Computed example of a mutant assay.
Amino acid sequence: MSDTTTRALALLNLLQTHRHWPGIELAMRLGVTERTVRRDVDRLRDLGYRVESTPGVAGGYRLEAGSAVPPLLLTDDEAVTMAIGLRVAATQQLVGGPEVTLTALAKLEQVLPSVLRRRVNALAESIHPARMGDGPAVSPVVLGELALASRDRERVRLRYIDRAGADSVRRVEPHALAPAGRNWYLLCWDLERDGWRTFRVDRIESVEHTRVLFDPRDISEEEIAERVLLASSWSPQKLEADVVMELALDEMDQYFGVWAQGATAEDEMHTRWPIGGPDWREALYGLLWIPAGVEYATDFPEPHRAELREALERALRALDAPPPAPRR
């Protein structure tokens, strides 16, 4: 393979891994001049790849979608990862998921070398993804567009339908996509509300790209997981109750962090906080996080209230009783 062909393939690989590349950075990565980059871009265009160029200091190149799918350049690891991902996707709650992903998987595995096919089979046998159960179906188009925007750090406009059915347009900086429970969630920075927000992906009607890039904000993996978990807990629960605690709202915010979401001030010294769960055991877990010494009242409904009281009374009797004899 000639140096020119090798370089053009290397350029194609870079264009496929990022939405926008400045010309000078492509030249540095390929070890050539910007003029050579322009010639290689023309070669890719001759092969049917739609490479868009933008002039100016901040100009560069990006691979655009065309009327047909051009050949993709994948490394061995990327091909194996894609095959595994398609197998996992076939088990999830995507619109047309099993049919579309299995046909795509068949086309990919048909051209995989036998060595890579064995890797795919070995890995697939050891991966047991959690199914999303009977959750709402998610559009693979929306999911794919959000994944691209998260990868490329591109601001987007979302048309979002909330739980009450209200329609709104949100300008956001997408950061991460994550499944939790029966749903997919998008963690993003909401530009209008100037803060982190988590949206249910099945409620996102459309995604509009703005081509405006942003610098990623600092957030740890632990906080991402915590915010997604918190968002998943806001789905309607079998048991829902309020807790009014003798704690000012700002103090409650400092103590609970992201879990203070939904709390409101009753007055200067009291805060109302919604809790819930599939039963009283899950709701009790929230009560246990109330700081020591802080008194509170709750409107736990029956029969959960009686079940909780009986469990607590038994626990108190167990604590007051002599400990059991030590194990032999």
Score class of each variant (00 low, 15 high):
68 A>T: 15
185 Y>I: 04
301 P>T: 10
230 L>K: 01
205 E>C: 07
198 T>D: 08
46 D>W: 07
107 K>D: 15
120 V>W: 03
328 R>E: 12
109 E>G: 02
182 R>L: 13
104 A>E: 12
287 L>P: 03
24 I>N: 07
236 P>Y: 03
43 R>N: 10
136 P>Y: 05
218 D>H: 09
115 V>L: 09
211 R>D: 15
265 A>Y: 03
104 A>P: 02
254 Q>W: 09
242 D>Q: 14
217 R>S: 10
242 D>F: 14
181 G>A: 06
67 S>K: 09
310 E>V: 09
104 A>R: 14
274 P>Y: 09
163 R>M: 13
268 E>Y: 04
15 L>S: 05
78 E>A: 10
112 L>Q: 08
154 E>K: 03
78 E>N: 06
57 V>G: 06
219 I>Q: 02
84 I>Q: 06
15 L>K: 00
151 R>Y: 11
123 L>N: 06
4 T>Y: 05
166 A>C: 07
186 L>M: 03
207 V>N: 01
312 L>C: 10
180 A>T: 01
143 L>A: 11
2 S>P: 09
234 W>G: 04
101 T>M: 11
321 A>S: 13
282 E>V: 14
3 D>A: 13
43 R>P: 06
89 A>K: 01
320 D>N: 12
70 P>N: 08
221 E>P: 07
109 E>A: 06
165 G>V: 04
192 E>N: 11
76 D>R: 15
290 I>K: 02
306 A>P: 00
276 G>C: 05
184 W>N: 02
44 L>R: 01
160 Y>V: 07
292 A>I: 11
309 R>Y: 08
270 H>R: 15
211 R>I: 04
173 E>L: 03
68 A>I: 12
249 L>C: 06
272 R>M: 10
147 A>K: 03
218 D>W: 05
115 V>D: 14
70 P>C: 07
120 V>R: 01
328 R>H: 13
172 V>D: 00
223 E>Q: 10
305 R>I: 07
238 K>Y: 09
120 V>S: 04
165 G>E: 03
147 A>H: 08
66 G>W: 05
13 N>Q: 14
61 Y>C: 07
60 G>N: 06
206 S>N: 11
81 T>K: 04
273 W>V: 04
200 R>D: 00
215 D>K: 09
222 E>R: 09
264 T>I: 13
260 A>P: 01
72 L>C: 09
141 V>M: 12
180 A>Y: 03
148 L>W: 12
262 G>S: 07
130 A>T: 12
8 A>S: 13
74 L>W: 05
42 D>V: 10
197 R>E: 06
52 E>Q: 13
117 R>P: 04
142 V>F: 01
79 A>H: 01
134 D>M: 12
192 E>L: 13
191 L>D: 14
255 Y>Q: 11
211 R>A: 15
121 N>S: 14
114 S>H: 10
162 D>Y: 00
289 W>S: 13
48 G>I: 08
226 E>I: 04
84 I>P: 02
85 G>S: 15
